[in-house]
Structure formats: C-alpha cells, structure tokens
Amino acid sequence: MANTPQYDTDRHRAYPEPPAHPLWHRYGQPKPRLPQTLTPDQQQRNRELLEAAARKPRTAKGR
C-alpha cells in the first residue's frame, strides 16, 4: 500500500504543460507609448471631475 492516498494525487500535474501558441510570443523590444497631450480644456475638465469626486462621499452602492 502506498503512503499517499489515491485521492491526494494531483491529476492536473500528471502531464507536462503544452508549449505556448506561436502567436503568444512577442519578438523584439516593446515599443514605447507616446505621452498623450491634453488640451487646456481637457485638463480643466479633469480638474473639475477630480474636485467633484473628492467632495462627493462614497457610498456602498457606487463601488
């Protein structure tokens, strides 16, 4: 009789993991993202939204 009970073996690890699909590989260096420039109007709108969010109390419903 074995020391490990039959139900304790992990069948998911019985075989090696298959190789990744070729499309999952990225070749070369990742391309840097260019910083997005906001217009003054967009910056002002963001400031207003941040101020409004800071003043407004959070509720459990809004999570």
Rank of each mutant, 00 (worst) to 15 (best):
W24S: 07
Q44L: 08
P30R: 03
Y15E: 13
D10E: 14
E17S: 15
Y27H: 07
A14W: 05
H25V: 06
H21T: 01
N46L: 15
Q36N: 07
P30S: 01
R13C: 04
P35I: 04
G28L: 01
L34P: 07
P35E: 08
T39N: 10
R45F: 06
L49W: 04
Q29P: 10
T37A: 14
P32E: 12
R47K: 12
Y15K: 14
Q44I: 02
Q42V: 05
R11M: 07
D41F: 09
P19T: 02
P19W: 02
H12Q: 03
T37N: 15
R26G: 04
R11C: 05
T9S: 14
P18R: 07
P35S: 12
N46F: 11
Q42R: 12
R26M: 05
L50N: 00
L50H: 02
D10N: 15
Y15A: 08
D41M: 06
T39D: 11
L38K: 09
Q44H: 09
H25A: 10
D41H: 14
H12P: 00
R47Q: 13
T39Q: 06
P22V: 00
G28S: 10
P16Y: 08
D41T: 11
A20W: 00
T39Y: 09
L34M: 11
E17Q: 15
N46W: 11
Q29H: 02
T37M: 14
T37L: 13
Q36H: 05
P18W: 05
D41N: 13
R45Q: 15
L34H: 07
Y27V: 01
T39E: 12
P16N: 08
D41Y: 09
P32I: 03
A20Y: 02
Q36A: 04
L49M: 09
L34G: 03
L34Q: 11
L38M: 10
P35R: 14
T37H: 14
L50G: 00
R47F: 12
P32H: 08
T37C: 09
R26I: 01
T39I: 05
R33E: 09
P40T: 13
A20D: 08
A14I: 03
D10C: 09
G28T: 03
Q42C: 00
P40D: 15
R11S: 12
P32W: 01
E48C: 11
R33Y: 03
P19D: 01
Q43D: 04
Y15L: 13
R26E: 04
P30M: 01
P30I: 00
T39F: 04
K31R: 10
P30W: 03
H25F: 13
L49D: 07
H25M: 11
P22Y: 01
Q43F: 06
E17N: 15
T9I: 13
Q43Y: 05
Q42L: 08
L49C: 05
R26W: 05
L34N: 07
L49K: 12
R13L: 12
Y15R: 14
W24R: 10
P35D: 07
P18I: 08
Y15H: 11
N46I: 14
T39C: 10
P22D: 00
D10R: 13
K31S: 01
P22G: 03
T9V: 14
P35Y: 05
P30D: 01
L50F: 02
E48K: 12
A20P: 11
T39V: 02
T9R: 15
R33N: 09
R33D: 10
